[in-house]
């Protein structure tokens, strides 16, 4: 392949990298809008049924949610460190940081699983039992919680797979521009940001 063809349709590598990153950021903007629908639904429910919203949120496991916030933030730090390491020309350190981020992501899912299991036992899952809810709006809050965190968990899973892919790719680790790792990290940070807003929307709303 001729040198000028390698980055086609771009003239050089720097511009191709610029474009890749911009493309990723624009994709993330669309992800933000996707979750926006969930947040808008939560906003509407809160404005219309404020007391029910708070009462239902009280059923959530605040401490598990808080722990998960800390886990995800730490995982984000690891992803950022991986980018840093790849840029510094330390592929092994980058791989280790990615692995840590990835394992913390798995830990997040595990905690989430424990939470879901507890909620299932307590009959909070949609359609299992609703006897101890006062009114349908509280059930709706729980349903919205499952949809919102479920959609988020899907994104966490995708993020974990992407990080695994980046960690396994020797070329990605040795790329001093950290293009692949950088873009995967961007995605992972955004998943983190979404959770940062899910946390007060769902968990903190229930604290009395």
């Amino acid at each position: 392949m001729a040198e000028e063809e390698r980055f086609a349709p771009f003239a050089d590598a720097a511009r191709a990298r610029d474009a890749d990153r911009l493309g990723m950021l624009i994709f993330l903007a669309s992800e933000i809008m996707l979750f926006g629908g969930i947040f808008a639904a939560a906003l509407a429910l809160r404005l219309e049924h404020g007391p029910d919203y708070a009462a239902a949120a009280g059923h959530l496991k605040l401490w598990l949610g808080t722990a998960n916030t800390a886990i995800l933030l730490t995982s984000s730090l690891m992803a950022a460190l991986a980018v840093e390491a790849a840029r510094a020309g330390a592929p092994r350190r980058a791989a280790r940081a990615l692995l840590a981020a990835l394992l913390l992501g798995c830990a997040f899912l595990a905690v989430k699983g424990v939470e879901y299991a507890g909620e299932y036992r307590e009959g909070l899952m949609p359609g299992t039992a609703t006897a101890h809810f006062d009114g349908p709006a509280q059930t709706l809050f729980m349903n919205l919680y499952f949809v919102g965190t479920g959609l988020h968990a899907v994104h966490v899973t995708i993020g974990i797979l992407l990080m695994a892919m980046a960690a396994l790719s020797q070329r990605a680790r040795q790329d001093r521009n950290a293009m692949l790792i950088g873009n995967v990290a961007l995605y992972w940070h955004l998943v983190d940001v979404v959770w940062l807003f899910l946390y007060p929307t769902l968990y903190l709303a229930g604290v009395r």
Partner: peptide, 29 residues
């Protein structure tokens, strides 16, 4: 476009498992 995507997903979830975001009987709107 992503807002349409999530909205339609919520309609499909409503139809399949009745989550109720848009159903006034369940406190939705």
């Amino acid at each position: 476009t992503p807002v349409l995507a999530i909205t339609l997903l919520l309609v499909a979830a409503e139809r399949l498992i009745g989550i109720g975001v848009f159903d006034p009987r369940l406190g939705g709107d």
